[in-house]
Design a protein around this nucleic acid. Structure first.
Length: 586
DNA sequence: AAAAAAT
């Protein structure tokens, strides 16, 4: 279901289907030099010489309709001035010098044009560092806030390298399989592979890739589950140089002989700590190690995430070669910040408390409500709808169509309340999410970090409210540390609760997951040398914070909280903030 | 125990 259904019979909706990636308006002769199907039997064609006659670095003609479709969507939502003073730390052997402007990177014409069309005036901090690292053919592990231009930070240099070098062996391999036949089932040899943990995130990355691939010969594709695999295979048949995928569907396509990674020169894991955790790791190893993917050192490997626990960094060594570790902090200079609140709410009171919060919010603002279970998401959506609130919900048991519909209704504001499971926690770029509510707290702090990262996007005041009760003991300790690092107001009862749970010791992963440096912000290879003050402490950051790159730890903005609610919540909140012994209050 | 990800 979903977008793949659209392309067959129904005409594309909403200003053209993404499947027109290279623009069906452009004659094939212009897109591909000439018709690729015919050219396979013609040894004298421009494709037979390693792509050599065709210069991949020269822009193809403009296509105004496609240009409008790709770039007409208004601004990117990034307020670049806010990113000026973000502290960045690069570690590893001989880290390449960062750039200050896109001109410094000696990028090719195609990518420069697309950067202009995307209205990026200058690189964000993660881009300033990541682009030269990738262009210098180094492996990279980057710890950077989502929404800070992370996607472009890897797409721009990868695509530029593809434009500079052309398709190389990948093209020859693709040609070889067609020798002497009029039709063969084509296998694709993507030069670059981007893996993501959810379908929606893969789709979002693909949308960006189309922008930066505009007027180039590079054809991006996206594949994921829950959608018509036949349509995906037909799309692959049209050529695939950069493939964005979720792991399961990619494995499927590999086993069907539709995709081979023998010539994959760039491997990118987005939300890499999730991709390497217990749920995904076997599939990643299947893709990266048990197929024909070039080994680390021969390919280039990139990993990005907002969180990078030490044990995942250690696991990641298997995939990386002499990599640079990048820690990108986030400035909280003025209005950009996330205020984090923790409220004691018993299970039986959660619903009425939630209604108070929603009632206090303005009608314009989007509210994202996280729950732990799919059943919980169903139930809460039904409840909110019965109460007359414009809510929808998303979780992994929904059809792909339902998932996309829910997300679209939420983004557009038609349903400004979205109840979601972990499926929506990572990477999704939704503007104007004013309030993230952890109706149920997650069981680990990384999940918390990614969830609240859906709000506080540039230009907006972000607010995150978490309901906590005795069921959440497991996260209290890490949550308290996090709030203190982020210079947030910490209710006194929370400290008491944390002290209590501390004595019951031992996180499930064997002790504290993080050193004093904090939350995966640091290159584990630097050892436990104590907190590193290296994050360019420009914004009144205390060195002992060590740099917590994904959370805006730099602002104490509790003042904005009460004001953003009506009185009902304020009083309610205060009542919950009086320092009772909350563990035993029940 | 639960979520995500192939069918």
């Amino acid at each position: 279901m979903g977008r793949y259904d659209r392309q067959g019979s129904a005409p594309p909706q909403q200003g053209g289907s993404r499947w027109d990636a290279l623009g069906d308006d452009v004659p094939r002769e212009r897109k591909w030099g000439h018709n690729r199907w015919d050219s396979r039997a013609d040894s004298g064609d421009t494709w037979s010489n390693n792509g050599g006659e065709v210069d991949w670095s020269t822009p193809l003609p403009r296509n105004e309709r496609l240009e409008h479709e790709l770039f007409g969507g208004g601004n990117t939502g990034i307020n670049f001035d806010k990113y000026e003073d973000i502290p960045v730390e690069a570690s590893g052997e001989n880290p390449p010098t960062n750039i200050e402007n896109f001109e410094d990177a000696s990028l090719g014409e195609i990518i420069r044009n697309n950067i202009v069309l995307s209205k990026y005036p200058k690189p964000t901090p993660v881009q300033k560092y990541a682009i030269p690292i990738v262009l210098n053919k180094r492996d990279l592990m980057a710890c950077a806030q989502t929404g800070s231009g992370k996607t472009a930070a890897f797409l721009v240099p990868i695509l530029n390298l593809l434009y500079e070098t052309g398709p190389g062996e990948a093209h020859e391999a693709e040609q070889r399989q067609g020798q002497g036949r009029t039709y063969v089932r084509r296998k694709q040899y993507p030069s670059a592979l981007v893996l993501a943990p959810t379908r929606e995130l893969a789709s979002q990355i693909y949308d960006e890739a189309r922008k930066f691939a505009y007027r180039s010969r590079v054809r991006p594709c996206v594949v994921y589950g829950g959608a018509d695999i036949g349509a995906q295979m037909r799309d692959l048949d049209r050529g695939c140089h950069l493939l964005v995928a979720t792991p399961g569907r990619l494995v499927d396509l590999m086993e069907r002989g539709k995709v081979e990674l023998q010539h994959c020169r760039y491997l990118m894991l987005d939300e890499a700590d999730r991709m390497l955790d217990m749920g995904f790791e076997p599939q990643i190893r299947r893709i990266v190690e048990k197929d024909s993917m070039p080994p680390s050192g021969k390919r280039q490997t990139l990993m990005f995430s907002a969180t990078f626990p030490k044990e995942i960094q250690i696991l990641a060594r298997d995939f990386l070669d002499n990599y640079i570790f990048l820690a990108v902090g986030r400035v909280g200079s003025t209005s950009e910040n996330i205020t984090q609140k923790v409220v004691w709410v018993e299970e039986s009171e959660k619903r009425s408390f939630l209604l108070d919060l929603i009632n206090a919010a303005g009608p314009e603002s989007l509210t994202l409500v996280f729950v732990e279970t799919k059943k919980g998401a169903d139930a809460l959506e039904v409840f909110l709808t019965r109460e007359g609130f414009p809510a929808t919900s998303i979780h992994g048991d929904r059809s792909q169509r339902e998932r996309e519909d829910a997300l679209r209704l939420f983004r557009s504001g038609d349903r400004p309340i979205l109840v979601a499971t972990a499926v929506a926690a990572r990477g999704l770029d939704i503007s104007n999410v004013r309030h993230v509510i952890n109706f149920d707290l997650p069981s680990d702090i990384e999940e918390y970090v990614h969830r609240i990262g859906r709000t506080g996007r540039v230009g907006n005041l972000g607010l995150a409210t978490s309901f906590i009760n005795e069921k959440n003991k497991n996260i209290v300790r890490d949550l308290l540390d996090l709030l203190m690092e982020a210079n947030q107001e910490v209710p006194s009862w929370l400290e008491a609760v944390a002290t209590e749970s501390r004595s019951s010791a031992g996180s499930k992963r064997g002790g504290r997951k993080y050193g004093a440096g904090g939350f995966g912000a640091r290159d584990y290879r630097q050892g436990n040398k104590g907190p590193k003050p290296a994050m360019g402490m420009g914004n009144g950051v205390k060195p002992q914070m060590g740099g917590y790159p994904h959370m805006n730890p730099f602002v104490n903005s509790s003042s904005s909280y009460g004001g953003s609610y009506g009185g009902s919540y304020g009083s309610s909140y205060n009542n919950y903030n009086q320092g009772t012994d909350w563990w035993s209050s029940n």
